[in-house]
Every structure is written in C-alpha cells, then in structure tokens.
Design a protein around this nucleic acid. Structure first.
Length: 759
DNA sequence: CAGTGAGCGAGCTTCCGCTTGACTT
C-alpha cells in the first residue's frame, strides 16, 4: 500500500517571491538605509569590488529544521539561518534588574550563543536586507527585537524588516515576504514584563528557601504552582475515606446468550443496599419470580473526531496510551520533526511539536481530504471539519500533524524505531481522523423485571465507524467500550419475552477517591489554568523531580516530605503568588501592556513593591526549617552505634550518622532484605554516569549480585517471605507482585491507571 | 524490551521561555 509518492504532492520549491526586496514600506523606519529608498535594489550596488554577485537576503528563523525547509521554498537569493531560540537574556548569576530604578533588565548575550550571533552579524553584512522571521508570538517578537538590536550595533547597518507566518507552506512564506512590518514594540514590552516578573519571583523566592530550608532549592511562578497542585491533591488522597456500598447483579440467559444486568429499581425506588444483608433481602424477595423483559430503549448518538494534537494533548495521549513520560514524548517528537531517513532522503515527518493551536493549513486540509477520498471515500465529509483553537492560544504554529499524509504508519515500519513509529501513528491517526466523518453509536438499554425488582442491561455498538476506521492506537477505553466488546454478547431483547435467571450476584464496592496526578493529568491541569507553555510542560515536571520535590512511581506523581514543606511554606507566606490565578492575572496585565493600555514598568512596580516587602518580612520572621528535613530513623550506625538520619544529598536521599563529623559513616536507604544472601539490604542504584533507570540491588555487591528493576514496596510476601515489588501493566494497572520467580503471589488492588477523560 | 553497581553532608545555588547540540569549566 501507500504507493502514491509523497513528493508529487509537494509543490516544487523555487519560484517563490521575487520582487519583495524593496517592497513598498513606510519610509519611517529608522532601520532602513537611505539609499534603498525608492527604486529596486538594482542600482543599490554602485561599483565597489568587481564582485558581481548581488547581495542576497538573510532570513532569520528560530529552528534550524525550519530554516532548511524555508530555504528550499525561497529562491537562491535567500539565505536562511536559525537563532536557536533566544540569543539575549538576563544574566544567570545575579538578578540583573534595576529594582531601585525602572526595572530595566540587564540584557546579555546568552552563554554559548556568541558564536551564533557573530555568524548572524557576518551574514547580515553580506546581505541587502534582513528579514526577521522568528515565531509569531510574544517570545518571537522579543527574539526579533534582540537580534535587530544586535545587528544594528554594528557600524554597517542593513535594512531590517519583520515578517511572520503561522504555517510552513510555500504560499504562506511567499505572502509573509511580501508583507513585512515593523517590530511590535508593545509585544516586546509585554515579553519584557513577563521575563522580569518571572525573574523577580524566582530570584527572590529561591534564596528565601536557601536560607530557611536548604541550599540549591528553587521556586517560581510555574513550578511552585505545579508543586502546590500535586501537594493539594495528595492531601485529598490521604483524607479520602472510602465508603462501602453494594450492588446487585443478575445473570440472565436467552438461548445461548448470557449477560448480566444491574438492579436499578426495587419496590418503585432506587435501591440503596445496606451491606450484604440488604442485597440478600432483595434476592429473597424476588427469588423464584419470573424474569420478563420490560421497556427497551434505543438511542443513537454520534461521536465527533477529536481535533488534531497540540503539545499538551499529544503529551497526555502518549502518556495514557503509550506510557511515555512527557519528556520522552518530546524527545521522540523532536526526532520525527527533524527528520528520519526514508529511502535516501531525510524527511521531516511531523510539523513543529511545540504548539498550542489546532489550526491546520489549507494545503494540509486539501491533502488529507484527497487521501481520505481515495482510501475511505465514504468517510469524507462534504466540507472540512473545523476546530476552534482556544482563545488563550498564541497560535504561532499549526497543530501537530504529519507533513505527508501519504506516509501512513505502516509504510514507515522499516524506517522508524518502535517508539518513533508508535508516536507517529498517534499523530497520524489523530490528524486523519480529525477530517473524517463522525461515528454513530447505538446504545440499547433494556429493563428486565423480576417481581418487585428491575434490572437494567446496557449495550452499545458502532453503527457507522466513521473516523474509527483509522483510530487504533489512539482509541481510549471508552472508545473501545463503545465498540461493543461487551455489548456484543447481549442478544436482542423484545418486551414481554421471558428470560432465564442463572443467579444473583451481590457485589461489594468502595467509593473511589481522587487519583494522584500523572504526567498527563498535571499537564492537563496546567494547560487549563494557563500555567506554563508548550515548551515548558515537560521541563517543569523534570525540575520537580530533580529537586526531589516529587517522585514518580508507577506514573504517579507524589510529593516528598521536602516537597510538602516547600509548598506549605510558600502557600503560607505567598498565597497570592503560589496560586493559579496569579498567572491569569499576569496574562491580563501583559495583554494591557500589549494593547498599550498600561506600560510595563507600572505593571511590574504594582506587583513588586508589596511582594518585596513581604519577601523581606518573611526572610526576617519566618522560622528556619534547616535540619528539620532530616528524618530520624531507627537504623543504628554500624560504626559507632549512634542512630542514623535520612538526609537529602546531591544524589538523592541517604542515611547519615548523627555523630557527624566525628563519625562520617553513610549508607544507602534499605528498601528490603536481600532474599538471596539474607544479610544484605536492597538499595536503589543507578549507573555510574548517574543516568539510566534506577534499579535495585543487594548492598553487599559484589559479594551478592542480586538485582531487579522493580521497586520494592516495603512489604513482604505472605506466601514465601520474599519482598513485594510494584508492577505496572496495561491490564491490571498498578499492583504488587512477589519478586520470587517461583512464587505466584499477586496483589491486584483497585485500578489506578487511566482515569477520566484523558485527552 | 533491555538494562548492572559511588559517594553524598555547611554552601555560591535560583526563575520562565525560546531553541538545539556539546568549545571546556
């Protein structure tokens, strides 16, 4: 399959813009050089060196992969270079803001970017025009502004213009080049305010934590709110009291079909079964009675496909469906974006992976409709499906989609790694599905009357597959359920017909409390609250883990003692800042700056004056928590007999002797007894370079080389005495299992895996 | 699915948001 070559779909490059050089532009620009005023640049070159090559045009974008593509679309007159994001920023080692004056930031070339900047300057000098084409959003505007400033400071100034495009198609690039504009200073100011605010918050709160808790800690507008969400949730999990309740199921039979229904009505009311006895009461009342089919209701509902992926949704879906961390998802997406060798050519397989938009370019819509029309003609809607992008989105990039729809996942099997292929399939399915017709699902709900009791049987099945024809990997549990896996066994029931009762089954249940956050759900929460950006969701989770504020076990994020302490301190002392509404307020302020309704200095001052006062006050008055972090243990030092404490060091938690510094003994935290040698402890280890997955081995290594990659739970097997470990698999979710290969003990507790609408 | 082993503590740390490689400190 997939014969149609992709190439045929891509409009040939070249032939792009050709007369945009000195396109009409208000002469007000202080950037333009006098000579390039009216007529074309043909005469802009008087005579200098006999170099006949006319000066070209330099285009600066952010991403090198994008640079490559755009260079192809534009003619040979153009050179496209990438800035790799920001080049200019605040210093790292000091606050770098004039807080006594007007908050003017001290902007420096970012370490390691000087070379790149020089290259840009060199290239600019050789050009007749520079087109600043960084992303069309707040940060992108600032990047252009900084580059322009850096290029201007060189004596020989070149005309510079700002261009923007929201999609990488030849037409969009051509249009952009034809419509240059000035840099939007108000947007630059908004970015400056954002940057300064984050610096003021981060570089004031962090030192406070160094003084009160421990060196090296950090706090900030985004990470501290994320931490708070995780800590708040943990409290809910802890205080939740499961309540017991009972249900009564009845197993019925009709011919060869067996199915069950749940008690929904008893003596005219919704039954509230009081324990097992309550269920027995009902059984006693209806036992021996005939089962007759009552009302049968049929409803049909349609399901629309989901919009194509944004970063946040991709991360959520990859976490829920594939079990990838957000970090892993982004690494793999980057590989797909940069390109993979397909045959002899390297092709970027997906569009840019950091986006908050569900927008799709016209050309991509046309392409996917062509594809659907050919492969699934019945599922091609008359007109394209339209998705509205969230109003808060900055919308600088398209949604994440395959660049060439004809490359279906199957056709790339031999070119991608397993991980790449699975992520690509997710993106491809979601995009193609998003432009297909909806699915129709018929649900049947039948009442079965047994004496005074009514049982209800539900089933549903897909009548029209629609977009489900392409959604496989990305199908959620609910999707699959709608597919009628369990519904298939319910035969057609007609009112009045008799059924056979096989048996009654009382079942005990417990109400489910809230679940801990996962990568998927914390990212979802952050996005909903406007905390963080596509480029920072994954890094924010990483920071919380690196600081040992939270741990991730079986995909769940739980705060450590340290994390709770930090969160409590911050929430107590800075409730207005460590709060989801703080960012919302900031965004509102930035909008005003951008609309020139207020100036950025005013905005910052309004925030900073009271904030700084509070920081000073807390710095002075808050008790110190230093040392309070060390948790006492009942483990005794094997060198001197004094008790040991659990401490946090550079490489994580460890045990240290309270006799320090006379006794410098340290140990790893024992997680279990070694079942092989019986004397050693099982301790957490990592590869020498500190990377790789944590594993668990015997502390007596190399005398004893017991090892496992499953984390000990802290309890022992009731059957054989070896220790239990955490396991995770799709079917049973999170559960405990015995580490002994000869022991079959398995403790499956309530499912903790996927929950709630995942994407 | 495969993957494997030290030392750590009283110090110069930290923010968020753009973007990818990596000269050595």
């Amino acid at each position: 399959m997939a014969e149609r070559t992709a190439q045929s779909k891509r409009p040939a490059s070249a032939g792009a813009a050709d007369e945009q050089t000195s396109s009409s532009k208000p002469a007000a620009a202080p950037t333009t050089v006098p000579k390039a005023k009216t007529s074309a640049k043909a005469k802009a070159k008087p005579k200098p060196k006999a170099k006949e090559k006319p000066k070209g045009i330099l285009v600066v974008v952010e991403s090198p992969a994008k640079a490559k593509t755009i260079e192809k679309y534009l003619g040979s007159k153009y050179t496209v270079l990438a800035s790799m994001g920001h080049l200019i920023d605040l210093p790292k080692s000091r606050i770098g803001i004039d807080v006594e004056g007007d908050f003017e930031p001290e902007y420096l070339t970012i370490r390691g970017k000087a070379k790149l900047l020089k290259e840009l300057q060199k290239a600019a000098k050789k050009s007749s025009l520079v087109l600043l084409a960084s992303d069309n959003d707040r940060e992108g505007e600032a990047i252009s502004y900084h580059i322009r400033k850096a290029l201007l400071s060189k004596e020989a100034s070149v005309p510079m213009e700002r261009i923007v495009f929201n999609e990488i198609t030849p037409q969009a690039i051509r249009d952009a080049v034809k419509n240059p504009r000035e840099i939007d200073e108000t947007k630059v100011n908004a970015q400056k305010a954002r940057r300064v605010l984050d610096r003021l918050v981060g570089y004031n709160l962090s030192p406070l934590l160094w003084k009160k808790v421990k060196n090296g800690l950090s706090a900030g507008r985004v990470q501290s709110v994320a931490l708070r969400l995780i800590c708040d949730r943990e409290k809910e999990v802890e205080t939740f009291l499961p309540e017991e309740y009972w249900s009564l199921e009845a197993d019925f039979r009709k011919g060869r079909g067996a199915f069950s229904g749940e008690l929904v009505l008893f003596r005219g009311a919704k039954p509230e079964l009081k324990g097992e006895a309550g269920a027995s009461e009902v059984i006693a009342a209806v036992e021996g009675k005939k089962a007759v089919v009552g009302e049968v209701r049929e409803t049909e509902r349609s399901m629309k496909p989901k919009p194509p992926f944004t970063t946040s949704k991709l991360q959520q879906t990859a976490a829920n469906r594939l079990g990838y961390t957000s970090k892993k998802t982004m690494q793999i997406a980057q590989q797909l974006y940069e390109g993979v060798n397909v045959g002899s050519t390297r092709i970027g397989l997906i569009t840019y992976m950091r986006t908050d938009s569900t927008r799709i370019s016209e050309t991509a819509i046309a392409e996917v409709r062509g594809y659907i029309g050919e492969k699934y003609p019945a599922e091609l809607p008359e007109s394209p499906n339209v998705y509205v992008t969230d109003g808060k989105a900055q919308d600088a990039h398209e949604a994440i989609r395959p660049t060439i729809v004809a490359y279906d996942p199957d056709s790339l099997k031999d070119h991608l790694t397993r991980d790449q292929l699975r992520l690509y399939a997710l993106v491809w399915e979601r995009f193609v599905a998003s432009q297909m017709t909806g699915a129709k699902i018929r649900s049947t709900s039948s009442d079965i009357v047994v004496g005074d009791a009514t049982f209800r049987v539900g089933s549903s099945h897909i009548v029209e597959q629609g977009f489900y024809k392409v959604v496989k990997l990305g199908a959620s549990k609910e999707d699959r359920a709608s597919g009628g896996a369990e519904g298939g066994s319910v035969p057609e029931l007609r009112p009045g017909e008799d059924l056979k009762i096989e048996r009654f089954r009382p079942e005990q249940h417990f109400t489910q409390g809230p679940s801990r956050f996962t990568d998927a759900s914390i990212i979802r929460a952050m996005e909903e609250q406007g905390i963080g950006r596509p480029s920072t969701y994954a890094p924010t989770i990483s920071v919380l883990l690196e600081r040992y504020y939270v741990t991730r076990e079986n995909r769940q994020l739980a705060p450590t003692t340290l994390g709770r302490m930090i969160s409590d301190i911050l929430v107590e002392s800075f409730p207005q800042v460590v709060n989801v509404s703080f960012t919302a307020g900031m965004e509102a302020g930035l909008d005003e700056v951008e609309d020139a309704k207020t100036d950025w200095v005013r905005m910052i001052r309004t925030f900073y004056s009271p904030f700084k006062l509070r920081v000073d006050e807390v710095m002075e008055k808050l008790q110190s928590y230093r040392g309070r972090l060390d948790e006492p243990t009942d483990i005794v030092c094997d060198k001197c007999g004094r008790p040991m404490v659990k401490k946090l060091g550079r490489f994580g938690f460890f045990l240290a002797c309270t006799g320090f510094p006379e006794c410098r003994n340290t140990r790893s935290i024992p997680l279990a007894k070694c079942p092989r040698c019986g004397t050693g402890d099982i301790v957490a280890r990592r590869r020498a370079n500190g990377r790789g997955r944590e594993f668990y081995g015997c502390s007596r290594y190399p005398d004893c080389d017991f090892i496992t990659y499953s984390k000990p739970t802290g309890s022992n097997c009731p059957k054989c005495g070896w220790f239990l470990v955490e396991k995770y698999d799709k079917k049973s979710g999170s559960h405990k299992a015995c580490i002994n290969p000869d022991c079959d003990y398995l403790h499956t507790h309530e499912e903790e895996g996927e929950r709630g609408p995942e994407d």
